[in-house]
Design a protein around this nucleic acid. Structure first.
Length: 580
RNA sequence: UGGGGUGUCGCCAAGUGGUAAGGCACAAGGUUUUGAUCCUUGCAUGCGUUGGUUCGAAUCCAGCCACCCCAGCCA
């Protein structure tokens, strides 16, 4: 058995975790061994610009770009823009931005299927001339009736036997705009009785008098996905056309179209510079989509959530979109590692959110500088310190990575700690501050709670604690202090707002068919805002990071969209693991 | 009830006839000035099911069962 572990490197230089074998890697290795495409590996990522990219697309991006990179191959970015009705430039721009952010660089210029409209038209004429396509006047509704059903064969269209001459004329008139939308279509002449419904004379071209975001008003007929995709692949010299499982039934059609045309004319139209090795047609291979529990990955529903204001936009930090996850503080490397860890296979599966969370924590733990931030402040007066006490403590930015440097943290007589770190009636095993008990202020001294000050209603006002001045950087003598809590100088701390995010849905499978309205299963606590937090001043210093591990709280990042000069907003990316 | 797929630990997943990798989760220890990280250990006599072939089967064969996809002039 050969060693199939290796590491892949992305454009930002980050080395991702080790890879393992999957059926696509195996197939490509095999193709290379057999010199199938002259040893070339050329893939493509082909989104339709009709929405924002999400975690599911990340899997496809990592696969396509990854597998190309591993084999010194190329990967194109191609917008599959054959249906102008749903598409827009906004999506094109966002998608390009997302892919770059994820850390991948496409080969050459961005491609558009619409770049090939002229060539595609010429190929369609070829099909007509060889008697393999015809113009059909059936309406969409009639065509559905003629198509038959899953269990019954279809019937031939009455227009199926038009002469080549007539078809050529009609198709040309379709292009010049003589016909209304839907009045006719160009169809492949295959087999109306085929058990695979995709082969029952599929539509190749439809009439749409509508402006296209790339080609403007140049065209009023648009090729369908099935007709366009295989030919775009062929033109770009794609060797491995990777797509998801639902296209499996389209593969016979993908192959039919390519074989219906003269291979020489396809080769001639392709990007490939003159061919040392003979031209080989691209081959489609399908893999399972990525699904995650507690999340929705369906463009239609994501769009619906944006439009009904269930979330604030495509980049809402709770969204599984790349834009949302980025704003949430997920890193590109973490997402890449996650995609790798999930693997690529053909079985339908639903990945546990815990896997994603692990990938995020794993990356953030290694790379985030530490800081202290108190979410629910309660004042602690250090009684044996003078009123004007100001001590600058030096703390490591990372407990294990010295290269990340150190920071200065001011200690004053009055500090704040988190309300939950003090308990009058502690449960068994409580390791934090209790009346009369000791605890260490992280990076500073051990303190002892000597007085609990309350108001008339019994509400906690402040804590009075004494400092053991002999415990800075060393253990106290003669006793063990187990607890360590974070703190911030009350006077020197920086006020900020924090947004705590949690999963958007309260059920494991929000995409389940028996949920009619997704609003029924929303997690009420998916966003909690806390406005009275106080963080150590280092986070505002010149050159400060925009993301941190707030010690004992979790990973947080600055929300640039929500922050202003007098209001700082941090998003909680994810909590720390908590086994307590 | 046509066609195409898929079933290996709670969740992913490797494995392609030689006696079940790995990750997540979980559990138990250890280290620790983050109840984090890190380390160590444990976690499928079993691969949807029933038969068959074989010295030997998750891997080959047959039947059965379950689930997913397809009847857009969407992708």
């Amino acid at each position: 058995m050969t060693d199939q572990k290796s590491a892949s490197t992305t454009v930002d230089g980050a080395v991702d975790s080790s890879t393992s074998s999957n059926f696509i890697r195996n197939k490509i290795a095999d193709d290379i061994k057999q010199n199938k495409h002259g040893g070339r590996v050329h893939t493509r990522f082909p989104p339709e610009p009709n929405g924002y990219l999400h975690i599911g697309h990340a899997k496809s991006i990592c696969l396509n770009f990854g597998v190309a990179a591993e084999n010194s191959g190329l990967c194109n970015l191609r917008f599959d823009d054959t249906n102008p009705e749903k598409e827009s430039q906004e999506y094109v721009d966002a998608i390009k931005d997302n892919i770059s952010w994820l850390g991948f660089q496409w080969n050459g210029d961005v491609r558009y299927s619409s770049n090939y409209f002229e060539q595609l038209y010429a190929f369609a004429v070829q099909l007509i001339e060889s008697g393999k396509a015809y113009v059909c006047d059936l309406s969409a509704i009639e065509a559905r009736e003629y198509r038959g059903s899953l269990t019954e064969p279809g019937r031939n269209s009455p227009y199926r036997d038009r002469s080549i001459e007539e078809n050529r004329g009609l198709f040309e008139r379709m292009r010049t705009g003589e016909f209304a939308d839907g009045s006719c279509s160009l169809r492949a002449k295959i087999d109306m009785a085929a058990p695979n419904i995709n082969m029952r004379d599929p539509v190749l071209y439809r009439i749409r008098h509508i402006e296209h975001h790339q080609t403007g008003t140049q065209w009023c007929i648009y090729p369908t996905y099935d007709y366009t995709h295989c030919l775009s692949d062929a033109i770009e010299g794609i060797t491995h056309s990777l797509c998801t499982l639902e296209f499996e039934d389209h593969r016979p059609l993908y192959d039919w179209i390519l074989h219906a045309l003269e291979i020489a004319s396809i080769a001639g139209a392709s990007d490939l510079e003159d061919t040392d090795s003979k031209y080989v047609l691209p081959e489609q291979t399908e893999f399972a989509k990525l699904k995650l529990n507690y999340t929705i990955v369906g463009k239609r529903k994501l769009k619906e959530m944006v439009e009904t204001n269930v979330v604030t936009g495509w980049d809402d930090p709770r969204m599984p979109t790349l834009a949302g996850m980025r704003r949430r503080g997920f890193t590109a490397a973490a997402l890449r590692n996650f995609c790798e860890s999930v693997g690529v296979a053909r079985s339908d599966s639903i990945v546990d959110l815990g896997m994603l969370e692990h990938a995020i924590r794993d990356d953030l733990d290694k790379n985030s500088p530490r800081a202290m931030c108190v979410l629910n402040p309660v004042t602690v007066v250090l009684t044996n310190l003078p009123d004007e006490h100001l001590q600058i403590l030096s703390m490591a930015n990372h407990p294990k990575v010295d290269e990340m440097g150190r920071r200065s943290v001011p200690l004053t007589k009055r500090v704040v700690i988190d309300r939950s770190d003090f308990e009058e009636l502690p449960v068994q095993g409580f390791k934090r501050l209790i009346a009369g008990g000791e605890v260490r202020l992280r990076g500073a001294y051990v303190i002892k709670c000597i007085d609990v000050i309350k108001d008339g209603a019994g509400e906690l006002i402040e804590l009075h604690c004494s400092v053991d001045l002999d415990t800075l950087g060393k253990k106290p003598e003669g006793r063990k202090v187990k607890g360590v809590i974070h703190w911030v100088s009350e006077a020197k701390g920086i006020p900020l707002t924090v947004r705590l995010y949690d999963r958007l849905f309260s059920v494991e499978n929000p995409e389940s068919k028996d949920i009619e309205d997704i609003r029924e299963c929303l997690n009420e606590d998916s966003l909690i805002e806390i406005t009275s937090c106080i963080a150590e001043p280092s986070i505002m210093e010149e050159g400060a990071s925009s993301s941190y591990q707030f010690e004992r709280e979790g990973y947080y990042c600055l929300d640039e969209k929500e922050s202003s000069e007098n209001k700082l907003v941090f998003n909680r990316t994810i909590t720390l693991r908590d086994s307590w």
